[in-house]
């Protein structure tokens, strides 16, 4: 694979933490501001795709295996389904944490207000699970496509 220039590598290393922090902010504040698990996960996966484009697939594949990403995605999906099973005493997907004094149980006043981070019941946890799943899934797609096409013609045999 052709080596990319030093400018691309430096700018990508500077930009990657900011993109990741913004994506994690979108995931964590999904119940207060626009965004959520899928949107934030797509932003973080975009930052990881930037690293793959800048540094080449071989340098990234030495650090991250796609089997680990697949495992992380399965953990996210299982976490989402098990969080949906928490409120099974009433119905599937019942938000049983909202309104309690426990974690994320605060209810904001009615109307437009900035809200509290510790509110929303099960919604922030579900956002985290879906965000993990989307980050791992989209990054796995980009990474395995980059590894499979690192030689001209795609076939390495």
């Amino acid at each position: 694979m052709d080596e990319t220039s030093k400018i691309i590598k430096t700018v990508s290393s500077v930009m990657f933490p900011f993109v990741t922090i913004y994506g994690l902010y979108v995931i964590l504040h999904g119940h207060l501001t626009p965004g959520g698990g899928f949107q934030g996960g797509a932003i973080v996966a975009s930052g990881c795709a930037l690293l793959v484009v800048a540094f080449g697939s071989d340098a990234i594949a030495k650090r991250v295996k796609e089997s680990q990403l697949s495992l992380l995605e399965s953990i996210g999906a299982l976490g989402f389904i098990s969080l949906a099973f928490v409120g099974i005493a009433t119905t599937f997907f019942y938000n049983s944490l909202a309104g309690t004094k426990f974690l994320f149980g605060r209810i904001p006043p009615y109307g437009s207000n900035p809200g509290y981070l510790s509110s929303g019941g099960l919604l922030p946890l579900m956002n985290l699970a879906v965000g993990t799943k989307v980050i791992a899934g989209l990054f796995a797609i980009v990474l395995i496509l980059a590894i499979a096409t690192r030689k001209k013609g795609g076939r390495s045999k």
Binding site: Q39, A42, I43, A49, V53, V142, L145, T149
Partner: peptide, 22 residues
């Protein structure tokens, strides 16, 4: 946000990788 993340970045990366292979 979803359109900007998926459509403008990830789709472009995937298409560029497939152009590089063909």
């Amino acid at each position: 946000i979803a359109e900007a993340g998926v459509g403008a970045c990830l789709t472009t990366a995937i298409l560029i990788f497939s152009i590089k292979a063909t």
